[in-house]
Amino acid sequence: MYDVIIIGAGPAGISASLYTQRANLKTLIIYKKTEISALEKANEVSNYYGFEKGIKGKELYGKGIKQAVNLGVEILEEEVTNIKQEGNQFKVETLKNKFDSKTVILATGNKRNKPNIKGIELFEGKGISYCAICDGFFFKNKNVAIIGNGDYAISETMDLQNIVKSITILTNGQEMPEYRAENVDIVKKEIDEVIGEKRVEKIKFKDNSIIKVDGIFVAQGVAGSTEFARKVGAKIQNDKIVVNDAMETNIKGLYACGDCTGGLYQISKAVYEGTKAGLQVINYLMSF
């Protein structure tokens, strides 16, 4: 059992870990290495305190992770595919592992995983879903599609396999690791549009072919903070996680910090929020 699991290893997540680790809390950071973060993309950071000649974003990112490792923080490079709330605790899942933790800090940055496909927003809640475990029930013995191409899509597929009749994974033009299961098909064509009258009925591809589906689950790329927040029932507004001054979401023990809470997309702001989240976790765990 961990005291805190931090998802994401950018300035927000690492800063949070520095405080929780130094307070002797059992801390685990899980992050996906292949996912290039906003900080790594920054070629030259010259507006952050203390670097007289500026620093490359990638270098600063690497230094942050090393700093946490040197302090003794456990770091795991795996893709988190699900977070569940169980009583007062959380279960954090990757395809290979499951971890229990008293608290979770979401700090995966501001990735927008909503595919830019015509009709997706129109049918949200009417056949378009972002959570297999929440909405699978409505698609018992139906034919559904999953938009995605990685571990997250596979994890959502596994959640649906025993409920629905058939699953078509749509990679929307992307490559995907090998995945075989009885009622699962993989289609790699690019998607043009989601069609329906009152609810999702069909998907049209760019080559003008059409398939009929009853529902579509969106699980594109690597799941980010917003997806996890939505699954456990945290408040989201305009795709940003709603937090109070102490970085607490509306769920006890669940925190969010950095770009995923909106506001300034700056390292200083991520560090500040990570610090607050870390300190608040310490306060919260001391109250027991």
Binding site: E124, K126, S129, C131, C134, D135, F137, F138, F139, R199
Partner: peptide, 16 residues
């Protein structure tokens, strides 16, 4: 919705 699937279907409720 567990006990009233018909109403959920009638109003196109597919996400809760």
């Amino acid at each position: 919705v567990d006990q009233n699937q018909d109403l959920a279907i009638e109003y196109n409720v597919m996400s809760i």
